[in-house]
Nucleic acid binder design. Structure first.
Lengths: 238, 238
DNA sequence: TCAAAAGTGTTGACTTTACACCCATGA
DNA sequence: TCATGGGTGTAAAGTCAACACTTTTGA
């Protein structure tokens, strides 16, 4: 290509990027915030405030601000909605069908997060924010059911290879609780001995030499995740 | 929340979505188009036409049009640049650091694609478009090196579980060629017998009972991917 | 003392890895 | 006939899945 052609192309590109119609797409982030309670995987939903979706729930999200990195937007949403930071949060996928949003063109980038529902810092900011068992969710506003299903799928794929589910539990937990979480996510009951063998091979856990207290039956031993595997302060580890 | 509050929130949201500064973010797609030649994984790059990145290469991409689905944009780019459709193409990740683009706020969504460099339909549309061996790429314009590395990582993760690499080869190929492609991607030499056993366990291939022709040595048997595993005409299969 | 959950090992099936020789072809 | 790569099987190690009994505790 000759230099003159390149200059023409550059002008063309710059013209395109500054033409107003190419800024007619808004960008949002939507957060699939998972928790664990009542032996079931839960997700945080908010009552939709749009008349098109009255009576439907939707995922918490917000538009990305022009002055924030894409990846910080979901942390902001999470902090605003739950008061939590230092949480596991990972990008999943962008969703951008033309008609996914009734009030205009909005491309959204989905993130999923895992938090401990009983964490002392957790404070839902909104009366319309509630935990829902994922099993009971049939319909959501926008394309949020598709987003949720995509995130559940990714979660299932990752939990065997990465130390993620610990983010759903308090710092100290028993192997029984841990197994319950795994079973809730993959929806399969596991053999207790094989599960313990699998977990112990990962070398993720520290035996605290403590026992559960106030259990109705024989208490189990307590463990915690080794510090080097915690999901925040950096990236997730293998 | 009371109804009046909800109405207020709705107005607030609608106001935000239509305030011009929230459309100040442009959306692009960037395509990491992989090919295979000279026993190495190749990627299609274009000479950057921006003075900030003179002499650097970049990934082919374009702004998403307001009237196209997000996922069709990379197909359009691919068709424009290579003349190819019916190709494997999958979304990888969105990249959205504030300063990733020198001329303004652009969030990009990366896709990766696998094509047969020797396909008869392949026709590079631009004299500045060329194949580069991924081994030799140290620096790219924008954050494209990061995008490329992310896509290579995803490719490596997927090739053992999904019938993807066949998209890099002509319809008929020998097991030797197939093994070469795998080795080029994962950068490890494999044992021939174990490789063949692994591939035959997947049941992806159809034995054509044909032999290579015009080989300098003993010709190998030819295979092709079973139709039900081809990546286009629907989603990738397990 | 009873009920309930905690804790713990072994076996067989299968998968993965390492490894070497003969065969068919083109030159 | 020779050089080159094509084609093939087995044994050992490791991983995965199935399976039952004893122990500890609270009630």
């Amino acid at each position: 290509m000759k230099t003159a052609d390149k200059e023409a192309l550059k002008r063309k590109t710059n013209a395109k990027i500054s033409r107003p119609e190419f800024f007619n797409i808004a960008i949002s982030v939507d957060c699939v915030i998972f928790g664990y309670a009542k032996k079931e995987l839960q997700v945080l939903l908010i009552k939709s405030n749009r008349k098109e979706f009255s009576e439907l729930y939707s995922l918490p999200g917000d538009l990305v601000r022009p002055d924030e990195d894409l990846d910080t937007a979901p942390y902001r949403v999470l902090k605003e909605k739950t008061g939590m930071d230092d949480v596991f949060l990972e990008q999943v996928q962008a969703f951008g069908a033309i008609d996914r949003h009734p009030s205009g063109r909005v491309i959204t980038i989905a993130y999923y997060s895992l938090i401990d529902i009983l964490h002392h810092k957790l404070q839902l900011s909104d009366n319309d924010l509630h935990w829902h068992s994922v099993k009971n969710i049939n319909q959501l506003a926008f394309d949020h059911k598709l987003i949720l299903d995509t995130c559940i799928h990714k979660l299932k794929e990752q939990i065997m290879d990465h130390p993620l589910v610990f983010n759903l539990l308090p710092e100290k937990f028993s192997l029984r609780e841990l197994q319950d979480v795994y079973e809730a996510i993959i929806n399969i009951t596991l053999d207790r001995r094989n599960f313990r063998k699998m977990i112990s091979l990962k070398k993720w856990l520290l035996d605290l030499n403590e026992l559960e207290i106030n259990t109705p039956r024989r208490p189990g031993k307590l463990y915690k995740l080794k510090k080097e595997y915690s999901s925040f302060n950096g990236q997730k580890k293998k």
